[in-house]
Amino acid sequence: MGEPVRVSIVAQDPILEAGTRASLQCHGDIAVALSGERAQVAVMMVDRVAPQVMHAVRAGREADQRQEVVLVATELAAGDAVQAFAAGIRGLLRRSECTAERLASTVVAAAAGDCTLPPDLLDGLLEHGQGADARRPGADGVPAPGGSALSERERAVLRLVADGRETEEIARELCYSPRTVTTVVHDVTRRFHLRNRAHAVAFALRAGLL
């Protein structure tokens, strides 16, 4: 086991902050950062994905590009995933679905550079930006999704990504190396001009490839 992921917690409600701190401290892969200590991941507890929240996220990432952000919101609308990932957020969770284990796994995934969000919000990523471009033939001649296919290995990896599994878990389940899993996801995102893991899963679901 390597060094634990250092996490800071931002919440207006001190009771909510204390509860979140206690749940994360019980996880062996996570250490809650002390005041003034740099954190690799910031967990923000908010009511909704409001403009002022996105402004705070962008300001924080400009101040420290190495810090990732996991956002836990009471309310999440259909288009919130687009705003959140555009602002640089790595993890997006509903408070009602945020168990201690799910939050911890999202934090660890964010520290590793992976994206996590509720499955029902994946489609929203395809309604914006490169999602529309991915439906057209790319510069390298890749056909539109209707005429494209994923290999069995790519499907297997993306199914587990869609289930919220981390790279190491996927590698163990499929008997691949973590490097192979990373390469598979990278190949899919590059081939279809997608932005990240979450976008790749949304693309595959929407195109009927999974």
Rank of each mutant, 00 (worst) to 15 (best):
G113M: 05
L174S: 11
C115P: 00
A112S: 08
S177C: 10
V201M: 02
V69W: 04
P14M: 07
A39I: 08
A59K: 13
Q83L: 10
R153N: 13
S105Y: 07
A204Q: 04
L92Q: 03
L126P: 00
T99L: 05
R135E: 12
E68L: 09
S35M: 03
G129V: 00
D29N: 09
T116A: 09
E62V: 11
A42I: 05
R95D: 12
V43W: 01
H128P: 00
L117P: 12
H128T: 13
P4W: 05
V57H: 00
G124Y: 02
A171W: 04
A22I: 02
D64H: 07
S35T: 14
V185Y: 07
Y176S: 04
M45V: 12
Y176I: 02
S96T: 14
T182E: 09
L209T: 05
E127Y: 14
L121Q: 08
G88C: 06
M54P: 02
T99Y: 03
T180V: 13
E169Q: 15
R179Y: 04
P14Y: 10
A84R: 09
E173R: 15
R95A: 09
E17C: 14
A77G: 02
E97D: 14
I170C: 07
F192V: 11
A110G: 06
A132K: 12
G131V: 08
V53L: 15
G91A: 06
L24M: 07
V82Y: 00
A134W: 01
V157S: 07
P51C: 01
R195W: 01
A50P: 00
L209D: 06
S148G: 14
L158H: 10
Q40N: 07
R48F: 04
S35R: 13
P143K: 10
L194C: 10
A86K: 12
D80N: 08
G147E: 14
P51Y: 05
V53A: 08
A200E: 04
A31K: 14
V57N: 02
A59W: 10
D163S: 08
G147D: 15
M45D: 09
A56N: 06
S151Q: 08
S105T: 15
D47Y: 12
A84N: 02
D187E: 14
S177Q: 15
C175H: 15
A18R: 14
A171P: 01
C26V: 04
R6H: 15
R95I: 12
A42R: 11
A22Y: 05
D140M: 13
G131E: 08
P119Y: 00
V181F: 04
E127W: 10
Q52I: 04
S148I: 03
V201S: 09
V188D: 03
A139R: 15
P14Q: 10
S151G: 12
M45F: 07
C115R: 11
V7D: 08
D163T: 01
G141Y: 07
G208P: 03
L71P: 01
S8F: 01
A11W: 06
V188N: 03
L103C: 06
V108G: 12
P178E: 09
A42T: 11
G146C: 05
P145G: 07
L117N: 10
G60C: 03
M54G: 01
E127C: 11
E68D: 10
G138A: 08
R172T: 11
A39R: 06
E101A: 12
S8D: 13
L117C: 14
A11Q: 08
L194P: 05
A204L: 03
A39K: 10
V184T: 15
P178G: 13
R190Y: 05
Q52E: 13
